[in-house]
Design a protein around this nucleic acid. Structure first.
Lengths: 126, 126
DNA sequence: TGTATTGTACTAGGCACGTAGTACATGCAG
DNA sequence: CTGCATGTACTACGTGCCTAGTACAATACA
C-alpha cells in the first residue's frame, strides 16, 4: 500500500483482494472487514475503500449490502477473480506488444525481451 | 495520428520518427520538415511538434538548431533509435509482467497469454 | 421504535499532464 | 543592417482523474 507509487490506491486494494480470492487466501462466503476497519488499517480515506469495494462488486468478486457488510461472493468469486487477472494481464501484454510493433521491433527481439522480463520478475517463487 | 486515442500526440510523433530512423526510412544526415510544415501536415499545433522534437533530441536521434532546422543525427542515430525502442518495449513488458505477478498469474499462464498476444498483433508482416 | 453501524451517492478540491498560444533567440540571405 | 524563417522557452488554459469529505439510505438489534 504505497500512496506515492503513482498507482491509484483503490486499484492496489482491488488487486490485493482480487489476488487473495484467486489464490484462496480469502474463501467464498467469507466476510471482509468493514469499510471503517480497512480504512483505519490501511490509513486511507473510507471513500477510497468504498471505491475499491464498488469495483470488486462490479467485477463479480464481492457482494456488499448497506447496513450488513461485504462478503466474498459464494458462487463464482474465485473464477471471476482468475478471469479478471487474466484479462488485466492480457490487456497489459497487448499494449506492450502493440507498442513493440509500432516501434518496429521484430518477433524474435520481442520474445527475448519477454523472456528476460520474466526471468527478472519471477526470480524465486511463483 | 489520432488526437482522441488517449495517447499523447507528441509521443505518437516521436514514435513514428523514431521508427522511421530505426527502419532506415529516414537516414542519418537527412533533414526533417520544418516545425510549421509538420504542424500543418499533421494538423496539430507547432508547440506539439516542438515538444516531440525536443524529446527526439534528448533521445539522441535528432539534432535541432534554431534558425536552421532539424536533422537526423549523423552518428549513432540509428543505434539510438533501436536502443530506445528496445528500452520502451522492455519497460512495457516489465509492467505487464509485474502486474501478472501481483495478480497471482503463474509463469505458464503468462507465457500463453504472451504468445496469444503476439499472434494477435503480428498477424501478417513484421 | 429508536439508535448505532454498515455501505452508498454525491460533491468539491487538488494535482498532473497534454496542448495551445505568444514572445523570444538564432541563423541566413539580400 | 534588415527582413524573414527557423527552432526555443515560457505561460496559461483545459481536462481527466484520484482522493477526501459530507450527507444519506439501508439494516440489525435492543
Amino acid at each position: 500500500m504505497d500512496p506515492r507509487s503513482g498507482y491509484p490506491i483503490y486499484l492496489q486494494i482491488v488487486e490485493q483482494i482480487q489476488r487473495a480470492v484467486a489464490v484462496g487466501r480469502l474463501t467464498p462466503g467469507e466476510q471482509l472487514p468493514t469499510v471503517k476497519q480497512l480504512a483505519s488499517d490501511l490509513l486511507v480515506n473510507p471513500s477510497t475503500i468504498a471505491r475499491a469495494l464498488r469495483e470488486l462488486e462490479h467485477l463479480g468478486i464481492v457482494d456488499s449490502l448497506a447496513g450488513r457488510g461485504s462478503w466474498v461472493r459464494r458462487d463464482g468469486a474465485t473464477a471471476a477473480a482468475s478471469r479478471v487477472a487474466g484479462d488485466a494481464v492480457a490487456s497489459a501484454l497487448a499494449a506492450a506488444v502493440r507498442e513493440a510493433r509500432a516501434l518496429g521491433v521484430d518477433r524474435t527481439q520481442l520474445r527475448d525481451l519477454f523472456t528476460s522480463a520474466v526471468e527478472t520478475w519471477y526470480r524465486d517463487d511463483a
